[in-house]
């Protein structure tokens, strides 16, 4: 029980972090059809910017400035890069973002070196918020939850209550129709791409000191974010949210599961030893294959429901 409750909180924090990254990608992928592999690179840039800024102006200004910088970079990428490539097709756009991943990765190494950065949680948030069964819940985790909840609320308000939000919503599901109605779809694209990059940057700012800030952090986050977006379904922020939380929970709860398939077979009178490949697969415990679970879930859902969990159209 005690592990269950703490795992629930841990899963929530991780899930919200995933959502912060995935929400931007969902918008970009659903509207523009771009498999943006550089999204995680922007997340990394966010963390590095925040580290650099927090050395000069402190954490709180960095929390504002770094995401804005990332948003500006996103806008630049869209206007000067993707827009020109757009008419060459989706694979061209994908390769364009591939190229960006390499360049940003090396640029970060050139600018900040190869070692992890000493980017730390600000002193004002470095205390235990409360204690649960003797285990501290750091205030910074609460802060992360707060920021991501605020972000969720802001996006929701923007999409539901503003004119641009309505256009974006319409463009999510019927991009060609929106364009036919005379809206300036390219500039909507720019806004969405910049906004998505801003969110990725924000995720980088608040995750960089919670996790570590180093030049391989983009590679670590990249695939799982795609899983979340596709699992949740294109065109649906709600689906993305549910998928993020679900993946967060899956990751945390699989850790505490010690049983394996062989244990399930035992009551049936079948015993398995780890002498061959099949035996090995059956005897490995769930906690060891936890990170595989999201990919299995992804494959399974796409097999039976190609639009994802709550997708509004076929991918």
């Amino acid at each position: 029980m005690q592990i269950g409750l703490i795992s629930l909180l841990d899963g929530l924090v991780y899930g919200m972090l995933l959502f912060m990254l995935a929400s931007g990608l969902t918008l970009i992928l659903s509207m523009m059809g771009v498999l943006n592999f550089a999204h995680a690179s922007v997340y990394m840039l966010g963390a590095y910017f925040a580290y650099e800024l927090s050395r000069w102006v402190g954490f709180w200004p960095a929390l504002i400035i770094a995401p804005l910088l990332c948003g500006a970079i996103g806008a630049a990428i869209e206007v000067w890069g993707l827009r020109r490539v757009h008419h060459n097709g989706h694979i061209a756009e994908l390769l364009f973002t591939f190229g960006l991943v390499f360049i940003i990765g090396r640029a970060v190494q050139m600018a900040w070196g190869m070692l992890p950065m000493p980017y730390r949680v600000p002193a004002s948030l470095d205390f235990p918020l409360f204690s649960l069964y003797g285990e501290n819940f750091p205030a910074y985790r609460g802060f992360m939850l707060l920021i991501s909840a605020l972000m969720l609320l802001t996006i929701w308000l923007l999409l539901k209550k503003t004119r641009i939000g309505l256009i974006i919503q319409a463009a999510l599901t019927h991009p060609s129709m929106v364009s036919a109605l005379g809206h300036d779809v390219p500039s909507v694209f720019t806004i969405v791409f910049a906004g998505g990059s801003l969110l990725a940057g924000l995720a980088g700012v608040i995750a960089g000191n919670y996790l570590t800030t180093e030049s391989s952090m983009a590679d670590a986050m990249g695939p799982i974010v795609f899983v979340v977006v596709i699992f949740g379904g294109l065109g649906s922020l709600a689906g993305c949210f549910i998928a993020s939380i679900l993946m967060g929970m899956v990751q945390t709860f699989s850790v505490v599961m010690e049983w394996s398939f062989a244990d399930m077979l035992r009551p049936l009178g079948i015993s398995v030893s780890a002498d061959d490949l099949l035996g090995e697969i059956l005897t490995i415990s769930i906690s060891r294959i936890g990170p595989l679970v999201p990919y299995v879930l992804l494959i399974v859902i796409l097999l039976f429901r190609p639009r994802g969990l709550m997708g509004t159209r076929e991918t």
């Binding site: 592990i3 703490i6 841990d10 990751q251 945390t252 850790v255």
Partner: peptide
């Protein structure tokens, strides 16, 4: 006696909970 998947875990909090317990 626990194994973790190589370079896959981003959030170690669940493991810490387990160790604590």
């Amino acid at each position: 006696d626990e194994f973790i998947p190589l370079m896959q875990i981003k959030d170690f909090a669940p493991y810490v909970t387990k160790i604590k317990a």
